[in-house]
């Protein structure tokens, strides 16, 4: 008996993979920025220091998302 294709996806599954890989960093960046805003609201005089720390935190968290993009180019060969 022939198998019947009911639905078909064309394209690259890597797009879905990147979507999954971006969830974690997205939540992480959200938490970092949210907590920074909270702290600035508590202690506005520390804003400068906190902003530096926030960008550091974002940079480390975001790295995961960018590794996620890069894996597509690494594993397609």
């Amino acid at each position: 008996m022939d198998t019947t294709v009911v639905a078909e996806l064309t394209g690259n599954i890597a797009t879905v993979g990147y979507g999954l890989a971006a969830i974690g960093p997205a939540i992480g960046v959200g938490i970092v920025v949210g907590k920074t805003i909270e702290s600035v609201a508590r202690q506005p005089e520390l804003q400068g220091r906190l902003q530096t720390l926030m960008f550091l935190g974002i940079a480390f968290t975001e790295a995961l998302a960018f590794i996620g993009i890069a894996t597509y180019f690494i594993f397609t060969n």
């Binding site: 940079a59 480390f60 975001e62 790295a63 960018f66 590794i67 993009i69 890069a70």
Partner: peptide, 13 residues
Amino acid sequence: VTLALRLLMNMVA
């Protein structure tokens, strides 16, 4: 690796 990738991928994207 992350230093290079972060910059590169931001610009590529």
